[in-house]
Amino acid sequence: MKRQLAEKSGREGETRAAMWLRAKGWQILDRRVKTAAGEIDLIAKRRGVIAFVEVKWRRRRADLDHAIDEYRLSRAAAAAEAVAHRYALDGEDIRIDVILLAPGSFPRHIANAWQP
């Protein structure tokens, strides 16, 4: 039951993140893309940039500071690398972004969060 609730909250967070990105001029290319390296929550495009977006939803804003770490970012980067050729077709730049969400706060968008 707890896992199902977490899954539902995660999906709602991804939907909110996608709406926020659209409001900022991003086009959502794909959602929940599964690869052997892991899942990519959102893939978005704006002005020659393809962003592979990791979305983290927490019930408390204070918990957002610990929602993402180097291990999670490296998995997101590996997943993005596995499928980047499908999305960056015209020489677009690619990057890993993170969007952190919690009730009662604006989304926190960390652009280019992974720099190996």
Results as ranks from 00 to 15, higher is better:
Arg11Asp: 05
Glu81Ser: 12
Arg86Gly: 01
Arg3His: 09
Glu14Ser: 10
Lys2Asn: 15
Lys34Cys: 06
Ala37Arg: 06
Gly25Arg: 02
Gly38Glu: 08
Ala17Leu: 06
Ala62Lys: 15
Asp90His: 15
Met1Tyr: 07
Ile94Gln: 04
Leu100Tyr: 11
Ala18Gln: 06
Lys8Trp: 04
Thr35Val: 14
Val55Gln: 07
Gly48Pro: 04
Leu64Ala: 14
Asp97Arg: 01
Asp69Thr: 12
Trp114Lys: 09
Met19Tyr: 07
Ile50Cys: 11
Arg11Val: 01
His66Asp: 14
Pro103Tyr: 11
Arg75Ile: 15
Gly13Gln: 05
Gly13Phe: 13
Ala36Phe: 13
Asp97Lys: 07
Ala67Arg: 00
Lys24Asp: 11
Ile94Gly: 04
Glu7Phe: 03
Glu54His: 13
Arg11Asn: 10
Leu73Gly: 02
Ala78Met: 10
Gly104Ala: 11
Trp26Leu: 00
Leu101Asp: 04
Glu12Asn: 09
Ile110Cys: 13
Leu64Val: 09
Leu29Ile: 10
Val49Ala: 02
Leu100Gly: 04
Ile96Val: 01
Val55Leu: 07
Gly25Tyr: 01
Asp63Tyr: 15
Ala84Gly: 11
Ser105Met: 05
Val33Leu: 00
His85Met: 07
Glu54Ile: 08
Gln115Cys: 03
Lys45Gln: 15
Arg31Ala: 05
Glu70Leu: 00
Ala79Leu: 05
Leu101His: 05
Pro116Tyr: 07
Ala18Cys: 01
Arg11Cys: 03
Ala44Arg: 14
Val55His: 03
Ala62Ser: 15
Leu5Met: 15
Asp65Ala: 13
His66Val: 08
Leu42Met: 09
Ile96Asp: 09
Leu89Asn: 12
Ala51Lys: 03
Val98Phe: 08
Glu70Trp: 02
Ala23Tyr: 04
Gly48Tyr: 01
Lys34Phe: 14
Ala76Asp: 04
Leu29His: 15
Ala77Val: 03
Trp57Ser: 05
Arg31Ile: 01
Arg31His: 10
Gly91Phe: 12
Asp65Gln: 14
Gly25Leu: 07
Leu29Met: 14
Ala76Met: 09
Ile94His: 08
Arg11Leu: 10
Glu81Cys: 02
Trp20Ile: 10
Ile40Val: 10
Arg59Gly: 11
Leu42Pro: 03
